[in-house]
Simulated scan of single mutants.
Amino acid sequence: MSSKKESTGRTLFVALAVSLVSSVFVAGAAVSLKPVQIENRLLDKQRSILAIAGLGDPNLSGREVKELFASRVSAKVVDLESGEYSTEFNPAIFDPLKAARDPKLSDALPGNEDIALIKRRERYTTVYMVEQDGKLESLILPVRGYGLWSTLHGFMAVKADLNTVVGFGFYQHAETPGLGGEVDNPNWKALWPGKTLFDDAGKPIIQIVKGGVDPASPSADHQVDALAGATLTSNGVDRLLQFWLGEQGFGPYLAKLRNQGV
């Protein structure tokens, strides 16, 4: 009886020791890898911005992405309520998604205003400008909203006229492959360049159209085909664009830029 107890005790002790050592190892690995993970996420975002802006090659190395981004793209933090640039935060490290979770830096959205289904909207966010010889070539706006299964995170790039689409795409989502996941399809993304976002009054008119766009329609220049078999994801994309291009999103900022003749 005594030997059985000792054997059981040793087994439990060994199991506990192995668990403790494993936990320490896993925790240490997580801590040591965190800077690498942060760096990789930043690199992925920069690569996505360059691609949506029509810059660079998808096969650029990490070093080439960093160099191209640093030479062509600049970032600024925008106060979404006033439309003014803010110097309160460093755009290189400011995290709008983290700000959206902070009650001091964000606002809860009433149901009738939360058409993108994001629950909270940050008061400040980061925009990106592609410049050449000191002149604005395109403006890149971060957008997000809920599709069928996930929040889609992406960027909309517009020309210096603040109306014509350069590119549009998502860098993070969990939509169904082959259905809502077709937001990643190059053929669908190729439908966006050249489309117009606003009417003459600055109101968003871009629209996702189920059944396909009629090329002969006078509305064709601001319509894009819906994703086949993915109605809810298509509706989510439509809603998130209406939100972020409207008064709750970048509307005040874009209005100021137009008034300044940018």
Score class of each variant (00 low, 15 high):
residue 250 F to P: 10
residue 174 A to L: 13
residue 210 K to A: 13
residue 225 D to E: 15
residue 228 A to S: 15
residue 228 A to M: 14
residue 193 P to V: 01
residue 155 F to D: 03
residue 236 G to C: 07
residue 188 W to T: 01
residue 154 G to R: 03
residue 218 P to F: 06
residue 247 E to G: 14
residue 168 F to E: 01
residue 246 G to D: 07
residue 179 L to Y: 11
residue 181 G to W: 10
residue 160 A to E: 14
residue 210 K to N: 11
residue 163 N to F: 01
residue 197 L to D: 02
residue 207 Q to T: 12
residue 217 S to L: 03
residue 214 D to T: 02
residue 224 V to C: 06
residue 159 K to C: 08
residue 194 G to Q: 04
residue 160 A to C: 10
residue 211 G to L: 04
residue 208 I to W: 10
residue 166 V to I: 12
residue 197 L to N: 07
residue 153 H to A: 09
residue 213 V to M: 01
residue 247 E to N: 15
residue 209 V to A: 12
residue 226 A to E: 06
residue 153 H to R: 11
residue 242 Q to R: 14
residue 229 G to N: 06
residue 182 E to I: 00
residue 186 P to E: 00
residue 247 E to V: 13
residue 229 G to E: 06
residue 152 L to T: 08
residue 183 V to D: 12
residue 191 L to E: 11
residue 184 D to V: 12
residue 176 T to G: 02
residue 158 V to Y: 09
residue 212 G to F: 09
residue 239 R to P: 00
residue 216 A to V: 13
residue 229 G to F: 11
residue 240 L to I: 00
residue 155 F to V: 04
residue 183 V to K: 09
residue 177 P to Y: 03
residue 201 A to T: 13
residue 209 V to W: 12
residue 242 Q to T: 00
residue 173 H to V: 01
residue 201 A to G: 10
residue 177 P to L: 00
residue 249 G to D: 04
residue 223 Q to L: 05
residue 214 D to E: 03
residue 160 A to W: 09
residue 187 N to G: 09
residue 153 H to G: 01
residue 212 G to R: 07
residue 180 G to I: 02
residue 160 A to G: 10
residue 246 G to Q: 11
residue 152 L to M: 15
residue 155 F to T: 05
residue 179 L to T: 09
residue 207 Q to P: 00
residue 177 P to C: 05
residue 201 A to Y: 09
residue 246 G to T: 08
residue 196 T to C: 00
residue 179 L to R: 09
residue 229 G to M: 07
residue 157 A to K: 12
residue 241 L to N: 06
residue 164 T to F: 01
residue 190 A to L: 05
residue 163 N to Y: 02
residue 249 G to S: 08
residue 175 E to M: 01
residue 164 T to V: 04
residue 238 D to T: 04
residue 158 V to A: 08
residue 151 T to A: 10
residue 188 W to Y: 04
residue 208 I to Y: 10
residue 248 Q to V: 08
residue 151 T to N: 15
residue 180 G to L: 05
residue 201 A to P: 10
residue 227 L to F: 11
residue 159 K to S: 14
residue 210 K to H: 13
residue 161 D to R: 13
residue 162 L to G: 03
residue 185 N to C: 08
residue 244 W to R: 05
residue 209 V to F: 11
residue 212 G to S: 08
residue 236 G to A: 00
residue 165 V to Q: 04
residue 249 G to W: 04
residue 214 D to W: 06
residue 193 P to N: 01
residue 241 L to G: 08
residue 160 A to P: 07
residue 158 V to D: 10
residue 241 L to V: 00
residue 153 H to M: 12
residue 205 I to K: 14
residue 196 T to W: 11
residue 182 E to F: 11
residue 169 G to E: 03
residue 180 G to Q: 06
residue 194 G to Y: 02
residue 202 G to R: 08
residue 173 H to Q: 05
residue 179 L to G: 05
residue 229 G to R: 07
residue 205 I to V: 15
residue 199 D to R: 03
residue 164 T to N: 06
residue 186 P to L: 03
residue 215 P to K: 05
residue 212 G to C: 07
residue 236 G to I: 02
residue 247 E to M: 14
residue 236 G to P: 07
residue 158 V to T: 12
residue 190 A to F: 07
residue 172 Q to N: 11
residue 183 V to E: 10
residue 163 N to L: 03
residue 183 V to Q: 09
residue 160 A to Y: 08
residue 212 G to N: 05
residue 162 L to A: 08
residue 244 W to G: 02
residue 170 F to E: 04
residue 174 A to W: 12
residue 162 L to V: 07
residue 163 N to E: 04
residue 215 P to D: 06
residue 179 L to H: 06
